[in-house]
Amino acid sequence: MLNEKELLRGNTPSLLLYLIAKSGRIHGYGLIQEIRSRSKGYFQFRAGTVYPVLHKLEQEGLIRGEWAAQAGRQQRRHYTITEKGKKALSRRLSTWVEFTTAMNLILQPRGS
């Protein structure tokens, strides 16, 4: 049976891609905080969930990572979405909307 973890695993790349696109420029830990805050603490992403996916997205050319200096602190690797990433995100979002609409149609009580 599918649990919440398995459901989330398949959608993590889209989720991260969306948040990177929304924020314009964000680092890995910032993404973890953003997900926690937007889901009101429901999703507690670990480093192991976020960073390998970010590296995969970068390898596929959907995002671009760059080290940026901060005054008096360790450098961070910031990510921005690429043109290819924007197109991929738009495709993924429309698939997601169609999927959730179909799921809701099935799951809603008849006659409502």
Partner: peptide, 16 residues
């Protein structure tokens, strides 16, 4: 590159 990014992640987390 991976270790450096994880190190930066830990620094952020510890600071928080």
């Amino acid at each position: 590159r991976i270790i450096r990014e994880l190190k930066s992640h830990f620094a952020e987390q510890v600071a928080e």
